[in-house]
Amino acid sequence: MTAATGPAVGAADRCAYALRLGDDALVLAQRLTEWSAHAPTLEEDLALENIALDLLGQARHLLTYAGAAEGQGRDEDRLAYWRDDGEFCNLQLVEQPNGDFAATMVRQWLFSTYQRLLYLALRASADPDLSAIGERGAKEAAYHLDHAANWVRRLGDGTEESHRRTEAALLGLWPFVAEMFSGDAVEARLVAAGVAVDGRALRPAFDAAVDAVLAEATLSRPEAAFTARGGRSGHHTEHLGHLLAEMQHLHRSHPGASW
């Protein structure tokens, strides 16, 4: 089994796969940092920064891994700062604007529910680096999920206003859920080699976890008004370009500089 995962075999696939997971973490971290000094309580400033810091750490490991698998000398910064939006492979969910606190928490809850399941399964990867990333990431994602799900419960079952805002956030973000479980040829080849997680297989556990929280939050699963697709192959909503413009501007203004 491990013979199929040697450096020459599937290197391009492993690079692509790590970029997907790394870009999810990087883009969501970037979004969460926009809350800094703007959260509803000081405790929440601290929590959102903490989640962003975990995600940024995951992104750095995954981008470094991707650069090494690719073997062309691109490090984490080269990958983060010098790719255009069409080369980013994150889910469209994570690039969605923060909106109000309900939208940020619903987005975090949906993503962390998915990411925790993904990382738990990734621990069994035949690739020791990805397995280690899964081991550590699953623990972090469990904390993020706990925090976000608690807020979804509080906001859903809080006041009339918080219920209305959370319901609207859920309706707005639900179309981005299906993309997490879409699967494709890259993933299928790596699943066959025992390296990657079969995303499609995570859906039943995701649905069960989501439904349980929704029930406590006195909310129900909405119908998706449309289905977002294409993030994994570089097709993004208009929001990602603005996020990257802000993130990459200073670095790109000084080509070749060290920081």
């Binding site: 940092t33 800094s36 750490g57 920081w259």
Partner: peptide, 20 residues
């Protein structure tokens, strides 16, 4: 959001978190 490297971004984020 504009930190010029991921390492610097992590350091600054951790610092602002310490301030909170």
């Amino acid at each position: 959001t504009r930190a010029p490297s991921l390492r610097r971004k992590a350091i600054l984020l951790a610092k602002v978190q310490d301030e909170a």
